[in-house]
Amino acid sequence: MVISVKNLTKRYGDLVALDHFNLEVGEGEILGLLGPNGSGKTTAINCILSLLKYEKGSIDIYGKPMAPEAYDLKRKIGIIMQNVAVFEELTVYENIDYFCGLYISDKNKRRSLVIEAMDFVGLNDYGKFYPKKLSGGLLRRLNIACGIAHKPDLIILDEPTVAVDPQSRNNILEGIQRLNREGATVIYTSHYMEEVEQICTRIAIMDKGKIIATGNKEELKAMINSGEKITVEIYNPENRILTDVKNLPHIVSAFFHDSFLTVKSERDKNNLMVLIDYLKTRQIAFGKIYSEPPTLNDVFLEITGKELRD
């Protein structure tokens, strides 16, 4: 086990930020820590890194208790903060070299690691640029390069794609998967469920300082009752349509949102053809129609009663 967190409790005054938080991360995993803003993801990461004090609980990394002076453990960890943690007065190369130099003292070895890190995040052409000359996406890539240049075994990324353009986001996500393929264990916190679904081998959903569900995306989706979601544009939405649809077989719920009818089916049941037949038979005019499998947001919604992005 790479990380083992047991009964971690952290308070900010009266607010319980982590409430008997438990987490286990196995070697070679990309664990996605998914939760809305304020759910306790960053607090959990900072406690795991021994930056934050906590009231109760234990944190072991590679089987050893994590502490500020656990330098042998720190040597194996790479951290990519939510806020960009680089020096404005140093160039891209210098920033990576500075942070890498806190781990690697051999100059030649460090030089090749820095170049490799720049290459990894696609900043080869920006070595002499100062951070303020970089776009938001490139800055985030620099932030990542500073955290991974020393080739850590465990990489912790705390919302690394906030305010990043799609191209840089893809670059970052692909990079994380590549690091994982090269042997690194990854913890990835985000409130973007699409990202977590895309790259994580296992997902832990957090709410109010607790892990409320864990598993891979299929396992998580299997935990809820609802299955596919069908959305149909109805030109003349009427209440009788809603009543009729709710009486169709395997329907969990149906509701109108403006002129769009949303219908949720039971898990593993497909109602698309049944619904189309109904609309044709009753000669109800409809426009766009599409079907979606359940998402992690549906999982979160069903477990907590609220949207993931609330």
Binding site: L49, L51, P68, E69, Y71, D72, K74, R75, I77, I79, M81, N83, V84, A85, V86, F87, F99, L102, Y103, C146, G147
Partner: peptide, 24 residues
């Protein structure tokens, strides 16, 4: 500021390195 993790992100990153923060 650049050595106190509660004052800057750079410090938080440096505090996570295997070098004693007082040395830094």
């Amino acid at each position: 500021t650049v050595n106190q993790a509660n004052l800057s992100a750079q410090a938080a990153r440096a505090n996570m390195s295997p070098v004693h923060k007082l040395r830094v």
